[in-house]
Simulated assay, not measured.
Amino acid sequence: MNIVIADDHAIVRSGFSMILNFQEDMEVIALASDGIEAYRMVAKHQPDILILDLSMPPGESGLIATGKIKEDFPNTKILILTMHDDEEYLFYVLKNGASGYMLKNAPDEELILAIRTIHTGGTYIHPKMATSLVREFVNKDQKIKQSDPFELLSKREIEVLPLIAKGYGNKEIAQLLFISVKTVEAHKAKIMGKLNLKSRPELVEYALKKKLLNF
């Protein structure tokens, strides 16, 4: 696989080149010192992988370059290599097309693993930063649940709700679902509370909006 390395430190570029060129399946074909030069090298060589440093003063940073390069050269996979373990940077570059994010203090073996992972279509996140992604996913899930009360219902409550809306009595629902009448009553109370419904007509209207009557 052909690789371009973009970093503002010559010693870093040289060191990474030696490590990667030692691998039988990797070849560093160009070097760049900032985002603008990285764009030019990608345009010229169309590499498989671009290793891109986030911070490259005084030139254009990797933050800016990531989106530009990915938009114009979608076939080049971008691996962000940085000292910043800031989750805001992580989310930004992933949203703008980067395929990997790892820290500069990681061992050489991790760099090689990351390159091979993204080259085959995967995504590589440094283990320390992966926790931030999980936390973000959980927080988004909680926000969805807060914005849509339907997400708060249990599987059993979702079964009970349309039966109530269709006019089945508690005893009939209990027989259909093989549960007790008291359990049906408890589910009904929880449904009304979670959805903030005050009457059966409101429940029927809600079920219609959610297209639950064919459930």
Score class of each variant (00 low, 15 high):
residue 1 M to W: 09
residue 5 I to P: 07
residue 6 A to P: 09
residue 8 D to K: 05
residue 12 V to L: 14
residue 14 S to M: 15
residue 15 G to M: 10
residue 15 G to R: 08
residue 34 D to M: 02
residue 34 D to H: 07
residue 34 D to Y: 01
residue 36 I to W: 03
residue 36 I to T: 06
residue 38 A to F: 08
residue 39 Y to I: 10
residue 44 K to V: 11
residue 47 P to K: 09
residue 48 D to R: 12
residue 54 L to S: 01
residue 58 P to E: 00
residue 68 K to R: 08
residue 74 P to L: 02
residue 75 N to T: 03
residue 76 T to E: 06
residue 82 T to I: 04
residue 88 E to F: 00
residue 88 E to H: 04
residue 89 Y to K: 03
residue 92 Y to G: 00
residue 92 Y to E: 06
residue 92 Y to A: 05
residue 96 N to H: 10
residue 99 S to W: 02
residue 105 N to G: 05
residue 109 E to W: 10
residue 109 E to Q: 15
residue 114 A to E: 07
residue 126 H to D: 13
residue 127 P to L: 06
residue 128 K to G: 05
residue 131 T to F: 02
residue 131 T to W: 00
residue 134 V to Q: 06
residue 142 Q to D: 14
residue 143 K to C: 11
residue 143 K to T: 12
residue 149 P to I: 04
residue 157 E to L: 09
residue 159 E to V: 03
residue 164 I to R: 01
residue 171 K to G: 05
residue 172 E to W: 04
residue 179 I to P: 01
residue 182 K to Y: 14
residue 186 A to E: 08
residue 188 K to W: 03
residue 188 K to R: 13
residue 190 K to L: 03
residue 192 M to W: 07
residue 194 K to V: 04
residue 198 K to H: 13
residue 200 R to S: 07
residue 208 L to D: 14
residue 215 F to E: 15
residue 215 F to L: 13
